[in-house]
Computed example of a mutant assay.
Amino acid sequence: MTLPSPNELKTKQSDISSYVGKLLRDHFGKGPGSVYVSISDPFVTIYVKGFLSATERVLYSENHEKTLKKTRDFVMDKIGDEISAYIEEVTEISIEELYYDWSLENQSGMFLGVGSLSAEDSQDTFPGKDTVHDEVILMSEQVEKRPERIRSWKINSRTLIVLREGILVEIEKQLIKDGHREILRKSKDKIEKHMLNVKNISSQIESEVEDYFIDWNFNKDQSYTVLILKPNE
């Protein structure tokens, strides 16, 4: 794919931002307050903020988080392919996987579109990279097992992507075979986010972690973590 000019890139980001904002508004009754899009082949990230409707706010305040997330998962099953198709149309990146996650506490969410990523694709070098890997590996060891491989990319000053491969233990694989992948996904979501030491990561990468998201592809035995970094003053 030919690299777009800065103006072309900005237009593509704006188009995706507008589309996703409208799509979420049409399906949830309320769109996000803001949508930030980053494009860096083979990745496209869509970070939404201020996304919690009045009904969802009541559910969240009454500790009905499971119901809220189940409803969002149901809607995402309906619109995930639409988001991927639109990203492809605008960016010409063939999206092979779409990951998503929510931070209800921060009223935010993340969509991560991933195109063709080969085993040989290079990684980025950035300050604190070793610490990021060490903390993600430690978190993984505490929850399941040490990843067989870990890679990371800082696609811009605010977005850091970490890929873990080979993390499932045998009992998790059996739960998936027995049809319990959603229960496993929800359990891993809570535990992994609790275990990840974002404070230590922030202290080493020269940027504060403002938000972070985790999702899994159980079929491929891999997981993506996306860290949103606070702009330096």
Rank of each mutant, 00 (worst) to 15 (best):
W153G: 02
M195G: 08
L104R: 05
D124N: 07
S223C: 15
K69M: 05
K188V: 01
L229W: 03
V75M: 03
E141W: 04
K193T: 04
E92H: 10
Y86F: 15
Q174I: 14
K193M: 08
K173N: 05
R57F: 05
I95F: 02
S187P: 01
V20K: 07
R164A: 03
K154H: 13
D101N: 11
D77E: 13
E144R: 13
Y212Q: 04
I87H: 03
S118E: 13
F213M: 00
Q174M: 12
R164P: 06
Y212A: 04
L24W: 08
Y100M: 00
N197E: 12
S116H: 12
I183P: 04
P42H: 00
P147Q: 02
L117A: 07
Q107A: 13
S108F: 06
I150R: 03
G31I: 06
I39Q: 11
L160P: 04
S18W: 00
H194C: 00
S157A: 14
M139Q: 01
D26Y: 02
L98H: 01
I228Y: 06
M76K: 08
T225M: 13
K12W: 04
K154L: 13
F51W: 14
V44P: 06
T11L: 11
D130W: 07
I87S: 09
I161K: 02
D211S: 14
